[in-house]
Amino acid sequence: MPISPDVTTQLAPGVLDTLQHQVAVFARRAEQTRLGGVGRVHNTMDRAAYLLLNRLDQEGPMGVKALAAGMGIDSSTVTRQVAPLVDTGLVKRTSHPEDGRAVVLQLSPRGQARLEEVRASRRELMALCTDGWSEDERDIFCSLLTRFNSALSEIHTALPPGASAS
């Protein structure tokens, strides 16, 4: 979904250049640290595992297709990413309560404890990164980052499979 030329000409190129550069720097730094938090659990859970465990925690047990759809990724990707989580006991495969033939994925008690440990570490990192910010500044940043991520998601969803936004 290319952006029409009128949209980009109406916006200040300097701001857009700065924004795209800062987003690239953020992505690199986030990947370098995996926003893993601080202390003992620093850098100990990759992004995919965190997002999968978090989704299961927030939405409860679900099948691979539902999990993939909710995350905006392919079912085969979810299957591949869930396998080590099942192997390490963080996620359980159980029978669907209404259809015993279907399998649902569920956060295990061990997975719940591990997720809470990582969340606490990441909260500490966020507190360190925003030390000196006012509560309003944190709220505004969260609101704008959420809005930015939603816009990226909408653009990604509107693209045909295999296409890029450039």
Rank of each mutant, 00 (worst) to 15 (best):
residue 1 M to Q: 11
residue 3 I to S: 14
residue 4 S to Y: 05
residue 5 P to W: 08
residue 5 P to L: 12
residue 7 V to M: 08
residue 8 T to I: 15
residue 8 T to V: 13
residue 8 T to F: 09
residue 8 T to Q: 07
residue 9 T to E: 14
residue 11 L to Q: 12
residue 13 P to G: 09
residue 14 G to I: 06
residue 14 G to M: 04
residue 15 V to C: 08
residue 17 D to W: 04
residue 18 T to V: 12
residue 19 L to N: 02
residue 21 H to C: 02
residue 21 H to E: 12
residue 23 V to E: 04
residue 24 A to E: 09
residue 28 R to E: 13
residue 28 R to Q: 11
residue 28 R to L: 12
residue 32 Q to G: 04
residue 33 T to P: 04
residue 34 R to S: 12
residue 34 R to A: 15
residue 36 G to Q: 06
residue 38 V to I: 15
residue 43 N to H: 09
residue 43 N to I: 00
residue 45 M to H: 02
residue 45 M to C: 04
residue 46 D to Q: 08
residue 51 L to Q: 07
residue 52 L to W: 00
residue 52 L to N: 00
residue 56 L to F: 01
residue 58 Q to M: 08
residue 58 Q to Y: 02
residue 61 P to Y: 02
residue 61 P to C: 03
residue 62 M to C: 13
residue 62 M to N: 01
residue 63 G to P: 04
residue 67 L to V: 02
residue 67 L to C: 01
residue 68 A to E: 05
residue 68 A to I: 01
residue 69 A to G: 10
residue 69 A to E: 11
residue 69 A to H: 03
residue 70 G to S: 04
residue 70 G to E: 05
residue 73 I to H: 01
residue 75 S to I: 00
residue 77 T to M: 06
residue 77 T to L: 12
residue 77 T to C: 04
residue 78 V to D: 03
residue 81 Q to S: 13
residue 83 A to Q: 11
residue 83 A to D: 09
residue 84 P to R: 14
residue 85 L to H: 00
residue 85 L to C: 07
residue 87 D to Q: 12
residue 87 D to N: 09
residue 91 V to T: 07
residue 91 V to S: 02
residue 91 V to Q: 07
residue 92 K to H: 15
residue 93 R to S: 14
residue 94 T to E: 06
residue 94 T to M: 10
residue 97 P to S: 07
residue 98 E to Y: 03
residue 99 D to I: 09
residue 100 G to A: 14
residue 102 A to F: 01
residue 105 L to V: 07
residue 108 S to F: 03
residue 110 R to S: 06
residue 112 Q to I: 01
residue 113 A to F: 02
residue 114 R to S: 05
residue 115 L to K: 02
residue 116 E to T: 03
residue 117 E to G: 01
residue 118 V to W: 01
residue 120 A to G: 08
residue 120 A to S: 06
residue 120 A to F: 02
residue 122 R to T: 10
residue 123 R to I: 12
residue 123 R to L: 13
residue 126 M to K: 06
residue 127 A to G: 08
residue 127 A to D: 15
residue 127 A to K: 10
residue 128 L to N: 12
residue 128 L to Y: 07
residue 129 C to Q: 13
residue 131 D to T: 08
residue 131 D to K: 13
residue 132 G to P: 03
residue 134 S to K: 09
residue 134 S to F: 06
residue 136 D to E: 12
residue 136 D to S: 14
residue 139 D to K: 07
residue 139 D to M: 02
residue 140 I to Q: 13
residue 140 I to M: 10
residue 141 F to M: 15
residue 143 S to V: 03
residue 145 L to P: 00
residue 145 L to M: 15
residue 146 T to Y: 08
residue 146 T to M: 05
residue 147 R to V: 03
residue 147 R to C: 07
residue 147 R to K: 05
residue 148 F to I: 03
residue 148 F to P: 00
residue 148 F to E: 08
residue 149 N to Y: 03
residue 149 N to A: 15
residue 152 L to G: 08
residue 154 E to F: 06
residue 156 H to S: 13
residue 156 H to R: 13
residue 157 T to D: 11
residue 158 A to E: 13
residue 159 L to M: 11
residue 160 P to T: 10
residue 161 P to G: 10
residue 161 P to I: 14
residue 161 P to Y: 05
residue 162 G to D: 08
residue 164 S to C: 11
residue 166 S to M: 09
